[in-house]
């Protein structure tokens, strides 16, 4: 296992070392110490590495991740795992605003709470949050699954397309065109798989499903101002 000390190494060298890793390496485990809330840690990885960041991170940690597993033992600043393509990102603490924004694939697990705009414009990523999410989460969410084990803030799923939202607690309010939908057996099965992969101890039967009423898909004169 290789350990990188961000304080002595600096951000550019750390990211270059992680990004330069070939796909065929046997030795995949990496540790990063002294993150001290720094920005853009472990971004743009494109190999099946297993990276653990010991501490809390600033803006955009694990952005654009492809194939790597990145674990943050503390909390993450704004935009964690933004535009993730594949792989897994795990935040042991809380995540700040727009976690998992625009993600195309992979799994983002937040064991604590996520702040506002979690999963905004998500395009295929799966996000599992152990606690609550803030307002405007899954705004314009297009594809993928957002699982919330706690409560949701105001305007959940505003202007949502075809992403699926699973909520165990209560939403302060649903956004425009977001409605509760029937939880069918295939959804219970999907949710059970997501909870299992995220290591969350929750029963799929306790969740409700929300999605798009598809009322905003076509122009309607009554929606014009």
């Amino acid at each position: 296992m290789q350990t990188f000390d961000l304080e002595s190494m600096g951000l550019r060298d750390l990211n270059a070392a992680l990004q330069g890793q070939g796909p065929d390496t046997n030795e995949t485990s990496r540790e990063v110490v002294n993150p001290r809330g720094s920005h853009a840690l472990a971004v743009g990885l494109d190999a099946p590495l297993d990276v653990t960041v010991h501490g809390s991170t600033g803006y955009y940690c694990a952005g654009m991740n492809s194939r790597a597993t990145i674990r943050i033992t503390g909390s993450a600043g704004p935009g964690v795992a933004e535009n993730m393509m594949s792989g897994t990102v795990i935040v042991e603490g809380d995540a700040s605003q727009y976690a998992g924004a625009t993600g195309h694939g992979g799994l983002l697990v937040i064991r604590g709470n996520a702040s506002s705009r979690c999963g905004i414009s998500m395009k295929g990523i799966d996000i599992v949050v152990g606690g609550d999410v803030g307002h405007m989460s899954a705004f314009m969410a297009q594809k993928g699954n957002l699982v919330i084990c706690g409560d949701a803030g105001d305007a959940l799923g505003d202007s949502i397309y075809e992403a699926r939202l699973f909520l165990r607690g209560r939403a302060k309010g649903l956004g425009a065109d977001c409605v509760e939908k029937e939880m069918r057996p295939e959804h219970l099965e999907l949710l059970a798989g997501l909870l299992d992969r995220a290591g969350m101890n929750a029963r799929p039967e306790d969740f409700r499903r929300y999605g798009s009423a598809r009322g905003l898909y076509h122009f309607d004169i009554d929606n014009a101002y």
């Binding site: 809330g37 600033g58 600043g77």
Partner: peptide, 14 residues
């Protein structure tokens, strides 16, 4: 127990 602190980012608090 010693303080309440505010930061625009966590970096300010470390």
């Amino acid at each position: 127990d010693q303080y309440v602190a505010f930061g625009s980012e966590y970096r300010a608090l470390v």
